[in-house]
Nucleic acid binder design. Structure first.
Lengths: 331, 331
DNA sequence: TTGTAAGCGTTATCAA
DNA sequence: TTGATAACGCTTACAA
């Protein structure tokens, strides 16, 4: 079934059918009904590819996600989808599994006009590649940002978040505070690291590199990293981690050592659903995930409707949720 | 940049450029080099939409997922992607959030020729809608199957899985065995329910409806359901659940009651990563998730290359992983 | 080996 | 209000 067939059956021109499909007001009511009848009877659905080609527009946006193993991304996606749908856009998700070739392949959908814009939740690209792409196409970053790249993005203030969490530890009397971070490749990690260091500095506590360990966002590596910390004779009494999985690994290790979160407090990151399920419940730094998605879409729409708009960065508020694994100062 | 421009710049016809792009062997080496040079210099990327229109083929498949909150889907997606990529297909993921309108919108990409085929990991459609769609387009189900619908699918033997788990409980002396299932809408739930009942029957244990509770695949509802079971004076001493989250809710509730998994054993389902992280570690029924994805793609490729192939159902093996929360008989 | 030109299914311009 | 028809960017007979 093509528009031509419908036109034939309805005894009108393809142009008229096209007008009907697109709700063009300048078509006689009776003509419209005649055409609609044929469309209903035949179950005709316009070929979107032909449409896209003709309009040079797909009404689709692409979301690039590193993995969906991390439930962190779920609510962001929901925000993106609901907002995009308000603008009449569909959302396609591409999982890169952190492979740059895969990311490149999917982002080529921009060049090949299969999508009108893209949001990356975590790009494997370097500044140069990203800039080159963003120069020609509408692209927005959410949650992470390639430092220095010329792209609109929305993110939380990771440095402040870490700063506040560590400061809370300090206010409650902790002097030896550990950090389990990622490999410092991502901007969020770097910012959290800075916040950690700054909080120590501001409190007059000297930075001790033995207290900073690296993990891979999994509970296994989180446990390993924590073990290194606990093996120190003067081990930390509080640990800031960069993900809830890592926090769980740490907590498990702590109890393996015959200790509990009363001896060594642990702060997670992202406030994923596991934090409430676990026993002890896990204190965590929450990002406004749904909002991050919504704002990312807004930034993208702005960019798509006017490619020359200046690039913005929208900082959204975070919140530290205190549960069992780390208490709040003053409580 | 269009193929026409490249042709001009290279001093050849568009047909020749097209041949170069498509690696057609019948093009002189020197001509090819000349064209490639221009392509490289200009950074030209073929417009995939034009290509798709011309070939009536998109080389994309759509995967319909209910939610990505459940990490269960992650490895399946990975299997799908890696296998699809071997066939030269890209994978687009659409999240329905269980809304039929959303699912419909995305599956219309089949009708509008934006994707060549689709795999549903869990469809909200009824038999009729699915059959109507599958009659005209290539579509495959994985993990779940709409009973009676005429579609190829791959799945585990949920009934046997539940049967074996319950039988193991029985062999270890349990007489009062609970089941926390979903709302019996999904085929997997029904099959697991049958397996549960059958195991009891085969062991001469009468079915007690008080021992069967419903939850929504979340730890909160899992906990509620478990509470109902534990409030019975003759409460179960072993519980089969239909997801790991539910199992965690149950385990938490058990310890709230001052009991442990030594008093009331719990079997999870899906063997998601949380099962190893939790303390106690959670016994769980594992599905070959990666393989399910791979097989789904194979079925789809078969269907796409020959729409008249008979519909198959491929049953993949499951495995019960015994950890702390439920022990294996004979150990 | 290369080029010409007709399609693929739409939209949009221009006339009527 | 409608219809012809030229795009949109590409592929692919068919010719040369």
């Amino acid at each position: 079934m093509t528009i031509r067939k419908i036109a034939e059956l309805a005894g009108v021109s393809v142009a008229t059918v096209s007008r009907v499909i697109n709700n063009d007001p300048r078509v006689l009511k009776e003509t419209k009904e005649k055409v609609m009848k044929v469309i209903d009877e035949t179950g005709y659905v316009p070929n979107e590819v032909g449409r896209n080609l003709s309009k040079s527009k797909s009404n689709m946006i692409l979301v690039v996600v590193p993995t969906i193993l991390n439930p962190f991304y779920s609510k962001i996606l929901k925000g993106i989808e609901e907002r995009a749908s308000e603008f009449g856009y569909g959302v396609l998700t591409a999982v890169t599994h952190l492979k740059p070739e895969t990311e490149k392949k999917y982002l080529d959908m921009l060049r090949s006009k299969q999508v009108d814009g893209a949001i990356t939740l975590y790009s494997t690209f370097g500044k140069q590649t990203m800039d080159e792409l963003a120069e020609h196409y509408s692209i927005v970053e959410a949650c992470e940002h390639i430092r220095g790249s010329n792209v609109s993005y929305t993110i939380i203030d990771n440095e402040s978040a870490a700063y506040e969490a560590v400061t809370n530890f300090i206010q409650r009397g902790h002097k030896r505070i550990g950090l389990i971070t990622g490999s410092y490749y991502k901007c969020s990690e770097q910012a959290r690291g800075s916040g950690y260091e700054k909080a120590l500095r501001d409190a007059g506590i000297s930075y001790d590199e033995r207290y900073v360990q690296v993990a891979e966002y999994t509970y296994e590596t989180g446990a390993e990293a924590c073990e290194k910390l606990l093996r120190l004779e003067d081990h930390p009494t509080a640990i800031l981690t960069v993900s809830d999985s890592v926090a769980i690994g740490a907590i498990n290790k702590i109890s393996e050592f015959g200790l509990s979160v009363n001896d060594v407090e642990v702060m997670g990151f992202d406030n994923t659903s596991i934090t409430k399920m676990y026993m002890p419940t896990i204190s965590s730094i929450a990002q406004p995930r749904y909002e991050l998605g919504v704002v990312a879409v807004d930034l993208l729409m702005e960019k798509m409707s006017n490619p020359d708009t200046i690039n913005k960065s929208v900082i959204l508020p975070h919140e530290i949720i205190y549960r069992d694994s780390a208490k709040k100062s003053g409580n």
